[in-house]
Design a protein around this nucleic acid. Structure first.
Length: 110
DNA sequence: CCCCTGACGGGCG
DNA sequence: TCGCCCGCCAGGG
């Protein structure tokens, strides 16, 4: 009884819930979301969850720790970048410009 | 059971 | 920030 079973369905819902809280024009990271639901070493699972996220989930606002749009390939073409730019987030070379200031932490700003 | 893969992250130089 | 190595962990072959 060391490790609590990994409840994929619940985990995914938690991820989507946090993701939906990311303000328009701001971005967050896989690790920050994982930390917010107390699953610090499961940043990768956050990625898996967003890969199959339901419509309406602003997954484009989630990037990696360097501000790189690691998931753009799953949006097709430049879709992820366009979605961000439509919200006023500047992107250059698959990376969020001013990432440090646009970063939104579910733990500190919630 | 072994091995590899991956929308990741921390530490180091 | 970049590159590199390594730890992490669920899935799939």
């Amino acid at each position: 009884m060391k490790k609590p079973k990994f409840d994929r369905p619940t985990f995914n819902e938690e991820v989507y819930a946090i993701t939906r809280l990311i303000p328009k024009g701001r971005v967050s990271t896989y690790g920050a979301i994982a930390a917010a639901i107390e699953q610090t070493n499961r940043a990768r699972m956050v990625g898996q969850a967003l890969h199959i996220c339901p419509a309406g989930t602003p997954a484009h606002r989630v990037v990696n720790r360097s501000g790189i749009l690691t998931g753009k390939l799953f949006f097709g073409g430049n879709r992820m970048q366009e979605l961000l730019e439509d919200e006023g987030v500047e992107v250059q070379d698959d990376r969020v410009v001013n990432f440090k200031t646009l970063f939104w932490s579910p733990l500190e700003e919630l």
